[in-house]
Amino acid sequence: MFQAAVARGREAREGGGFHQHRLAPYAFISPFYLLFGFFFLAPSLIALVLSLFRWDGINDPRFVFARNYGRLVSDKVFAQAATNTAVYAIASLFIVIPLALVLAVLLNAKSLRFSSVWRAMYFTPIVTSTVAITLVFQILYDRDVGLLNAPLIYLGLEPIHWLGDRSWVKVAIIILITWRSTGLLSIYFLAGLQSIPEELYEAASIDGASTLQKLFRITIPMLRPIILFVSIIVLLSSIQIFDEIQILTNGSGGPANASMSVVQYLYVRGFTRLRLGFASAVGTVLFATVFILSLIQLQWYGVFRKED
């Protein structure tokens, strides 16, 4: 009986079990791909097809070919939303990332006391509800009773219309993005900083390198993968910004649409005006933009470069 079992086992390994053996890894990773296919790939493809139709979500869709894209290109509100979104993305890349890096360097200082407390504090904006944060900022930005205007009013100066002025409303949103994102990004940078071997700095010190030289010759090159990761994360999140603007401007998109983002534009067209085909076209363009920008970033950081 035992010998029969051994023979069956050998048969399984050498014969029919061969395919099972080869398929097993795929079976193990299949849950991810099934979920990815079901919740991302399929909806994305459906959205792509839907972008060629006019559909209110209830009645039958009507094929309009590229008409949705044509309107998108000629719509000045979309152009404005795209410009606003580009401003948020640029501000995030050039304000939030350097600020996060500086904070990380400070947090990494050996002389810093209570470093765990500081790190935890920087993490709090991420674990706090966006709605709660935005409502608090709405009060902070209030023209008459807001904290930000209090010093101006105290000094007898004209208070700023943070949410009512076409220029200031963008600044208000960038401040909110900066406050919300910098802490988390600095934690990423901190992890990168702590992985840089101390010997590199010691060797540089022996060679007489200054602090700035160490920063630009050691720290930043060694942080390259983290910078790439962080910049892609920042770019993606700033291009998809919605909640903060929607709540901060009561869904209006700010004065003269001055703060409207592309996702807010998509939301209004899709869910307020029930133009789901048109909204799908916006989503498709947004996806293509994010995809291309991410590829450019990866190329720029040399991810596709072949090692010699």
Partner: peptide, 16 residues
């Protein structure tokens, strides 16, 4: 007076 739409229903008006 011009009031930003975000402030129309809030405390700023009542305070005024």
């Amino acid at each position: 007076r011009y009031v930003p739409s975000a402030e129309v229903w809030g405390p700023a008006i009542i305070n005024a």
